[in-house]
Write a protein that binds this DNA or RNA. Structure first.
Length: 577
RNA sequence: GCCCUCGUAGCUCAGCGGAUAGAGCAGGAGCCUUCUAAGCUCUUGGCCGCAGGUUCGAGUCCUGCCGAGGGCGCCA
């Protein structure tokens, strides 16, 4: 019999079979309302009897009884109990759990299946602006997007990441004019200062502003000199972005850059297509689409402006062309946009127009993966004292420096290893703090919290891993596949159940694009491990050989699960702390 | 004015229509001749913003209020 590595799925399959044979009801195994139980001594519960009762016209406890009587799960379930209004509680067999855990030994996927319905994702993330240094505002898209990249790929989907650089549009007119004004030789050392100077001139000098607007038109028309100047800006910026990605451990490379400029050749076609379909109207000189159902301040229809009155294109046109490109040219099934939640309405409108235009069909799924803001300790948008956005590179360097200080105080690491560990701990802390909460909510950035050794932090997980590896080193033996696992102590059993829930955790994180579900699971698993570590001596001379082998296996598997989980979040786990 | 998101312990946050709403921090009491104390155990602490509704069952779904943040034609 083939069994699901995931406990809930396996129970669901058994319950579905019992409902079929015992009650002649067909329910999909995933809809059997199997949940891990919070009751003491109960592993899982099934809540389906209550919901079936009305449909069948029978009392829920009677339905539950029929379910239990028809259940063919003696190999797996030690005990069933009907409780309350019709809950069915399951206690799993220790030997069955032990066998399932033992099967994970040597499995690089730790029991996580590859999806049987692979899809092709276009994943838009990071997307910083050229000619600006990356700041905290770019961090969440980068970190969350990268975690989703890893999670989706691990689940067996094809992921086409693209970095939608802000490398086009109105600001480039003023940036290029400013380049010309300040002489063409020499490289730009400070991107932010350069941008701000250009901005200041644009706001103060009407003639400059006009030149800038004209320059945008030249750029979009493909003027050769303009194009070269523009390329210089892009190249300088891309080098800066790559430095941040390298420090952060982000998978994006130059090959993933599909900036706004990439879609420029398609913008005219998009407008033509929309016009041919009769979707456009000219309003105040601008070509607009008014998707149904969107209204603005005075109840008037809201436009998506696809071509501005000056003939230029805005980001709406680019976003339409982007969806068109990835669905038509790259044949993706899914479009994900990891972009802050203020853009929610914009994406709703873009998706609506894409559907009207046929760029998105019922074969496609497009989703705005929205996220909240990073707040300072004062609960407001994180800013420097001068009110500017905080440079990301400086923030990351501070994280590494703070981690290094803790290591200096506490660790017995060799001098040579400290820098690498400080980087893993510091960067991991920043990323984990960004991933550990529901992405839709704002979160408060506090060093103390993210570098805390207790609680749901990356440091806690890395510490648990380091302890396990220390034990494994001291054991002086490698755990072999086929090692017998025995679950005598409650702490051993609790850990085993947790280890077997990795597939469910990853499935939830992938299905809902919710990395924090994986974070929560990893924290629970590390907590279960510490309980085991405290109560179940592994290497003590009083521990019998077979128990020692079993405990080493549990410890090794815990490390595998935690390391795998962290890797899917883009976080490293040092050998020692 | 309309639209979107959020409101759970003093603080930071989990919570999948299911039973007595969970963690961590902070507060209180303990635990290092023993595998990393960057750890663990025990403990105090809740009108789940308010009011209705749907449901056998609502922190979770729906409606309306209140509060916070964000968005609402040529920036992206």
């Amino acid at each position: 019999m083939s069994t699901h590595a995931d406990l809930g799925m396996e129970l669901g399959a058994r319950v579905a079979a019992a409902l079929r044979t015992g009650l002649d009801v067909r329910v999909d195994p995933v809809d059997t309302l199997i949940r891990p139980s919070t009751r003491d001594g109960v592993d899982y519960q099934c809540n389906i009897a209550m919901s079936l009762a009305k449909k069948l016209g029978r009392p829920p406890r009677e339905v539950a009884t029929a379910l239990v009587e028809a259940l063919d799960a003696a190999d797996m379930v030690a005990e069933t109990e009907i409780a309350g209004p019709g809950f069915v509680n399951f206690v799993l067999r220790d030997d069955w759990l032990a066998e399932r855990v033992a099967e994970l030994l040597g499995d690089p996927r730790a029991g996580v299946p590859v999806t049987d319905a692979p899809r092709r994702f276009a994943l838009d993330y990071s997307s910083p602006n050229v000619a600006k240094t990356m700041h905290v505002g770019n961090m969440r898209s980068t970190v969350i997007g990268d975690a989703l990249h890893r999670l989706l790929a691990f689940a067996g989907h094809e992921v086409l990441p693209h970095n939608h650089l802000g490398d086009w549009g109105t600001p480039f007119g003023m940036l290029i004019e400013h380049m010309l004004d300040s002489g063409l030789d020499g490289s730009i050392t400070d991107l932010n200062a350069f941008y701000q100077q250009a901005r200041a001139k644009f706001d103060a000098d009407e003639a400059f502003a006009t030149r800038s607007r004209d320059r945008v038109v030249k750029l979009q028309a493909g003027d050769e000199q303009t194009r070269q100047l523009w390329q210089r800006l892009v190249d300088e910026s891309a080098r800066h972005f790559q430095a941040v990605y390298d420090l952060l451990g982000i998978r994006l490379t130059q090959a993933n850059i599909y900036g706004e400029s990439f879609y420029n050749p398609y913008l005219g076609e998009v407008v033509d297509e929309l016009t041919e379909l009769g979707l456009t109207e000219v309003s105040d000189g601008a070509v607009c689409v008014f998707p149904p159902g969107f209204t603005g301040r005075e109840g008037q229809r809201l436009p998506l402006i696809v071509r501005k009155s000056d003939g230029g294109y805005g980001y709406a046109a680019t976003d339409l062309a982007t969806a068109r490109y990835w669905t038509r040219e790259r044949d993706v099934t899914d479009l994900l946009y990891v972009v802050g939640s203020p853009q929610a309405q914009h994406f709703q409108m873009v998706f609506a127009v894409c559907t009207q235009a046929g760029y998105l069909t019922d074969k496609h799924r497009a989703e705005h993966i929205a996220f909240g803001s990073v707040l300072g300790a004062d609960g407001k948008m994180m800013r420097t004292r001068a009110g500017e956005s905080v440079a990301l590179i400086g923030l990351l360097e501070e994280a590494v420096a703070r981690a290094a200080k803790v290591i200096e105080e506490r660790s017995e690491l060799a001098e040579a290893d400290r820098a690498a560990v400080a980087r893993a701990v510091g960067i991991g802390a920043v990323k984990y703090a960004d991933l550990a909460g529901d992405r839709l909510k704002d979160y408060v950035f506090t060093w103390e919290k993210m570098l805390a050794k207790d609680g749901n932090t990356s440091v806690y997980l890395q510490y648990a891993i380091a302890r396990i590896r220390s034990v494994l080193r001291k054991a002086g033996e490698t755990v072999q596949p086929g090692t017998a696992v025995r679950l005598g102590e409650p702490a051993e059993r609790a850990l085993a159940v947790k280890l077997l829930q990795l597939p469910a955790a990853i499935d939830a994180a992938v299905a809902e694009y919710a990395p924090h579900k994986l974070c929560g699971y990893l924290f629970e698993t590390a907590s279960a491990f510490t309980g085991f570590y405290e109560n179940c001596p592994i290497l003590a001379s009083s521990t019998p050989d077979d128990v020692r082998g079993s405990r080493l296996a549990l410890a090794a598997l815990t490390a595998d699960v935690l390391v795998l989980g962290l890797s899917l979040l883009g976080i490293d786990a040092p050998e020692r702390l």
